[in-house]
């Protein structure tokens, strides 16, 4: 261990890692929001609630069926994605022709219902979720001590973000998706089932949120409020990055997590608000967001 700017390297890098972890969640969540917004023109306010639902599914799988964490990483996103399909079919699909505001209000209401039901069922305090045995303990990296699970979270979310970006940017599926975002009518005339694509896009977006929820379960306790505390910060992240660019929202998510972590070292009182302060600065200097395109 050594000193940097009068701070021990363990403290500095420890907070940096914490920042990266938060950044990993910001990236996964804002990525999902950006995909959904691109395709559905809706800001999914229920994203935080579905993130929480992912964590709860993982908890229930372990508690009632004895299914371990690793399977949950796969099953929870599928379950929550299926739930997302139901939400999209029943509610959201009816709002596409209306003002954005209605989608925001509807998903806000859905989030209230989901979180309220969870709170009734499980109380506010939440349940602990053990770190899987394979990832317990930590590694001494020389300049800091890294808990293995935290390293895994950063690695896993960065890989998933990369894969999503590759799919959207480099595959033909992604090309169809991007085309449908630009001009749905034209893409439909090429024989692509755009409404189904929209539904599946929503499912994929919320599946990402659920995946983040499972990753988060062992770090924060599994509790009904875990999503709503994240979602507002993620909205600020989205305003900063702009929702136009997939890579942009990933980079912004991780970057702001690091900024938040560093603030915890140098000015702890400001760590809760630093992302909002960055948002204000970005609004004043680049109103369209760092990666935003054009107006809005």
């Amino acid at each position: 261990m050594f000193m940097i700017f009068g701070y021990s390297s363990a403290l500095l890098f420890g907070q940096l890692l914490l920042g990266l972890i938060n950044g990993a969640f910001y990236a996964l969540l804002s990525l999902g929001l950006a995909i959904i917004f691109g395709m559905l023109n809706i800001v999914n306010f229920a994203h935080g609630a579905l993130f929480m639902l992912g964590a709860f599914v993982a908890w229930a799988l372990l508690e009632f069926l004895g299914i371990p964490y690793w399977w949950s990483l796969l099953i929870a996103p599928i379950v929550v994605g299926a739930f997302g399909i139901i939400l999209e079919k029943i509610f959201i699909a009816r709002l596409y022709k209306l003002d954005h505001l209605y989608g925001l209000l509807l998903t806000f209401g859905l989030a209230l219902v989901i979180e309220g039901l969870a709170r009734n069922q499980f109380g506010s305090s939440g349940m602990p979720f053990a770190i899987p045995p394979e990832l317990q303990g930590g590694t001494d990296l020389g300049f800091m001590f890294m808990p293995n699970y935290r390293g895994w979270v950063v690695l896993a979310s960065a890989s998933v973000c990369l894969v999503v970006w590759l799919i959207i940017d480099k595959t033909s599926l992604g090309a169809n998706l991007r085309a449908a975002t630009e001009n749905p009518a034209l893409v439909q005339s090429f024989g692509i089932n755009v409404p189904r694509m929209i539904t599946l896009t929503y499912a994929a977006g919320v599946a990402l949120a659920a995946f983040a929820g499972v990753l988060a379960a062992p770090i924060y306790s599994v509790n009904p409020g875990m999503g709503s505390s994240f979602i507002i910060t993620v909205f600020a992240v989205v305003v900063i990055g702009g929702m136009g660019s997939i890579a942009g929202s990933i980079l912004t998510g991780f970057g702001l997590g690091i900024v938040e972590g560093l603030t915890k070292v140098f000015y702890p009182q400001g760590s809760a608000t630093v992302i909002f302060v960055v948002m204000v600065i970005v609004l004043l200097t680049r109103p369209a967001g760092l990666f935003g395109r054009g107006g809005h």
Binding site: G109, L110, E115
Partner: peptide
Amino acid sequence: WFAVTQGVIFV
């Protein structure tokens, strides 16, 4: 339940 009711009214 108040939150749930609010959410339902929203929807």
